[in-house]
Design a protein around this nucleic acid. Structure first.
Lengths: 132, 132
DNA sequence: CGGAATCCTTTCCGATACTG
DNA sequence: CAGTATCGGAAAGGATTCCG
């Protein structure tokens, strides 16, 4: 039940704390860039620059920011090779790989219903017109 | 391949248009509130006010805004009962219900890895400390 | 090459007021 | 009860610059 969060009742402090944490994590990953990064890393390990090229439209800043967040949450592992120029590689962890299956499903869904959605958009606006 | 979007090449106009649309839809639904609404409607039809109560922390405005977007994309159906006071009900469509399975998986994932993530967060910050 | 900090614009989102 | 519109602060996010 991720829809619920915390209410201030002191008794169920543990339950509400878990709910609050669940919601926080959910909010972290229910984000465009994070999901696209997971999708991109699904193929295997990628360097920072490769990720940037793979994910169309992501900025340097957003990529860094989301990778930090995902590293903190243990979704990706960051490996720094102390060469020059530096080489930094990102890999999905086991939790990250598990989430990847879900993201794949979301991508499949998108392509599966692309036509329906386009049609729905066409109807929207012309649909609920006045009757008289 | 939702990670790719459109490049201005005139030849593959159709392909890039589809990619662009796919990314747009993906961005629409890869959003905290939209996913929580889908999750909430998974149980069955709910009124506006019920949704508001079900989804902790969502504001009147965000709920309206996301419901419009989801209606436009054909994820939810909106039924207005011309009573007084008005009664408006929201139900998942078939595409919406299909997406629900994915969102459920995301919620399951969240609870499944809650502990791991919390542990990872604890390590983060104290991990990459200087060696000397 | 990858990261961090800065600046600046855009978007998000809550609060409020008003309508039917 | 549900929806729309407006306002203003907060946060997101892009561009740029400097560092190792």
């Amino acid at each position: 039940m991720v829809t619920k969060q915390f209410r201030g009742s002191p008794e169920d402090a543990d339950l509400t704390r878990a709910d609050s944490l669940a919601r926080e994590i959910f909010s972290d990953i229910a984000n465009k860039w994070a999901l696209l990064i997971i999708e991109a890393l699904g193929e295997g390990t990628l360097r920072f620059g490769e990720l940037r090229k793979e994910i169309d439209g992501i900025s340097h800043k957003m990529l860094t920011q989301n990778l930090r967040m995902m590293e903190r949450n243990g979704l990706v592992e960051r490996q720094v090779h102390p060469t020059v120029p530096p080489r930094v590689e990102y890999t999905l962890t086991e939790p990250g790989a598990a989430l990847r299956a879900t993201v794949d499903a979301m991508c499949d869904w998108t392509h599966r219903y692309l036509g329906d959605i386009e049609a729905s958009r066409g109807r929207f606006g012309s649909g609920p017109a006045a009757s008289g």
